[in-house]
Design a protein around this nucleic acid. Sequence first.
DNA 1: TTTTTTGTTCCATTATTAGTTAACTTTGAG
DNA 2: CTCAAAGTTAACTAATAATGGAACAAAAAA
Lengths: 97, 97
Amino acid sequence: MNEYLTTFDDHLDGRYGQIGTAERANFEIKAKAFAIGEIIRDARKEARMTQEQLAERTGTKKSFISRIENGRSDIQLSTLYKLLEIGLGKRVNLTIG
Amino acid sequence: MNEYLTTFDDHLDGRYGQIGTAERANFEIKAKAFAIGEIIRDARKEARMTQEQLAERTGTKKSFISRIENGRSDIQLSTLYKLLEIGLGKRVNLTIG
DNA sequence: TTTTTTGTTCCATTATTAGTTAACTTTGAG
DNA sequence: CTCAAAGTTAACTAATAATGGAACAAAAAA
């Protein structure tokens, strides 16, 4: 079971200028959300599946999978569940600490 | 720490007619995604915060919080992080089993 | 009960994801 | 190298989340 405990800074490169804390927080939140792609790709590789196979199992296209895996989409919760649970047979466990 | 391990059926009422398995799976995924509202409301109550306070801390409006808590929105991942981590100071822990 | 606070719902607008196709690039086998 | 499989990207439409405001309802306080 892979664990993905992340801090905001995991997904930043430290190169922003003079922005407010609210704006920075928003940027960091987006970066964290986009990082889900890496997790999905890892899970797909682990399942030894191609993007096309995952797409077919979830009723979508490989281009859509690629976009997500490359961190270009802030996906909806239903998409997260669909890809990981239906597509890859994983169990998504969400805990609030 | 509250744990929200859910099965699809937790969020269904069992009253659907003759629909295919793909359609049913899709419906269940949606239901599961919508169920995040309950989790957010629990966390907010635990933090003794009003919807308006949570809205203010996350740069949004109480009407938006209400809609989510009542399971009327399939929110994006960034919204999940924004409300729980920035708004409520919780830690969202996502594990893939 | 009256007033205030908190929460819900509706409407309209904007922004972005979901979904798709096609062309292109990269990778891996043979 | 050549070919095929796998992955990436751009462009586009449709669906829907995000947002804001206002009116209303419910709950809590005075």
